[in-house]
């Protein structure tokens, strides 16, 4: 089972290589096989964390996956413009903050999808995931609205046939002290 997943990843990566390279001589085939094997080997070691142990993967509802991807793309536009406006317009500052919340999504695959989606949508970045607890950095307080209302979690739950998720409790890191610019700036 484990080998099958590695092989699947290898075949997909090799197909990707050939689709992009369009060269079929010994050198390119050799480089493709080598890099696909290397990536499948390294990537495969993360399978248990990212999509769960073999055999325990929940069946995906393809229709809701398509709906979800469409919804995600519509979310990117307004938040990207908001981030751009804050960068461009003087007098509009970011109001960043760290927020923690728990999710009821059970499978590692669903949590991986949530973490990646949070980072993909402008305005929020997944900082850390420990079991069911997500730490998210939010560019503005309202950027995390889709998470606070569980709009994103509910749609992912449909894809992975999880139970619908109630709005989580959002725990913002407390305090608003004067910033220590020396600490963050050089990083």
């Amino acid at each position: 089972m484990k080998l099958i997943r590695h092989l699947t990843l290898f075949v997909l990566l090799l197909g990707f290589w050939f689709a992009l390279s369009g060269q079929y001589n010994a050198l390119f085939i050799g480089m493709g096989v080598a890099s696909a094997a290397l990536c499948a080997w390294f990537g495969g070691q993360l399978f248990d964390q990212t999509i769960g142990p073999p055999g325990e993967h929940p069946p995906i509802n393809l229709m809701w996956l398509v709906v979800y991807i469409g919804w995600l793309l519509t979310r990117i536009v307004p938040s990207a413009l908001q981030v751009a406006a804050i960068v461009l317009l003087p007098g509009r500052d970011p109001e960043p903050g760290m927020v923690r919340f728990r999710t009821r999504l059970t499978s590692p695959a669903a949590r991986t999808m949530l973490a990646t989606s949070i980072t993909l949508v402008p305005g929020t970045t997944t900082v850390d995931v420990e079991d069911d607890e997500f730490t998210v950095h939010s560019f503005t307080p309202d950027a995390a609205d889709d998470l606070a209302t569980a709009a994103m979690q509910r749609r992912i739950a449909k894809v992975f046939r999880d139970d619908p998720e109630p709005a989580p409790e959002m725990i913002w890191e407390s305090g608003n002290p004067a910033p220590d610019r020396t600490q963050g700036g050089g990083a």
Binding site: E95, G97, P177, A178
Partner: peptide
């Protein structure tokens, strides 16, 4: 690294 917060 501590996140930057809005000054007062």
């Amino acid at each position: 690294i501590e996140p930057w917060k809005v000054p007062h």
